[in-house]
């Protein structure tokens, strides 16, 4: 894609490389569109100050919304698995932590607060923060399902001793995933350096230039990325010595 800014002679060349499939993007947005109502309707039973919304007919309605959204939320990853099983497994593999993640977490404050990217070690298709978000959401999805389905159909069937723990774990999964979601939402829509993520999730592509810097292990391959990283570190040390 070429872009020419008004009144400027130079032409900017942007090379786009694919990052997400159409199904992945659709799944992401359907996940969002169900997670948010699930969180809101769940919190109506959670926060005492929202009590009026939980009472009587309104309460019956929010519980119905919670169930409709839960069915879609629960089936979504299964649909994804049926249509793109290899992509799903690939993504899960890429969510698994590795030893560069620690370095990334250490360097992250300087990048996210001050915009200094130099100390960030090369990352794969997902960086350590994205991995954390992905893993939390996968685990939370499983916990919501394992605890939610018996809470729906199991009253009077499963022993109350177990039911009480299901409610507690459903709450805990909500607390962790909502915190993660808030951070994710801020970074995606409001952080000035994170615009690339929203572009990728809307159009499925990322610019080669961005991938080169921020997802070097994905762009160059792990071996080449580490070589470049080591060379850069040596160069910095050399400069620092003078």
């Amino acid at each position: 894609m070429t872009v020419q800014l008004k009144g400027r002679p130079e032409v900017i060349q942007i090379q786009w490389i694919p990052k997400y499939t159409t199904l992945e993007r659709a799944a992401h947005w359907i996940h969002t569109a169900t997670f948010v109502p699930l969180a809101i309707t769940g919190m109506i039973l959670y926060f005492p100050f929202l009590e009026p919304l939980a009472q009587g007919e309104a309460g019956l309605f929010i519980r119905l919304v919670h169930r409709v959204a839960a069915v879609i939320f629960g089936l979504l990853p299964i649909v994804y698995f049926i249509f793109e099983p290899r992509r799903l497994l690939m993504n899960i593999r890429e969510f698994l932590p590795n030893k560069e993640d620690l370095g990334w977490l250490k360097a992250a404050p300087a990048y996210y607060l001050l915009g200094r990217h130099e100390a960030m070690p090369p990352q794969g298709r997902f960086n350590a923060g994205e991995k954390m978000n992905g893993l939390v959401m996968i685990v939370a999805w499983a916990v919501f399902g394992i605890t939610g389905v018996p809470m729906w159909f199991g009253k009077g069937v499963i022993p109350p001793e177990i039911f009480r723990w299901l409610v507690v774990f459903h709450d805990l999964a909500m607390i962790v995933s909502v915190c993660m979601f808030l951070v994710h939402l801020y970074l995606a829509v409001a952080h000035p350096l994170m615009w690339a993520g929203l572009v990728s999730m809307r159009f499925g592509v990322t610019s080669a230039e961005y991938a080169m810097v921020h997802h070097a292990k994905w762009y160059y391959g792990p071996k080449r990325a580490m070589e470049i990283w080591e060379a850069k570190k040596r160069e910095a040390a050399h400069k620092g010595g003078h």
């Binding site: 009472q55 009587g56 309460g59 929010i62 409610v167």
Partner: peptide, 17 residues
């Protein structure tokens, strides 16, 4: 009963069932 929304927590936490 007007306020009850049918969540059923009471049925699961009562020590006397």
């Amino acid at each position: 009963r007007q306020k009850c929304n049918g969540c059923g927590y009471c049925t699961q936490f009562c020590p006397y069932g």
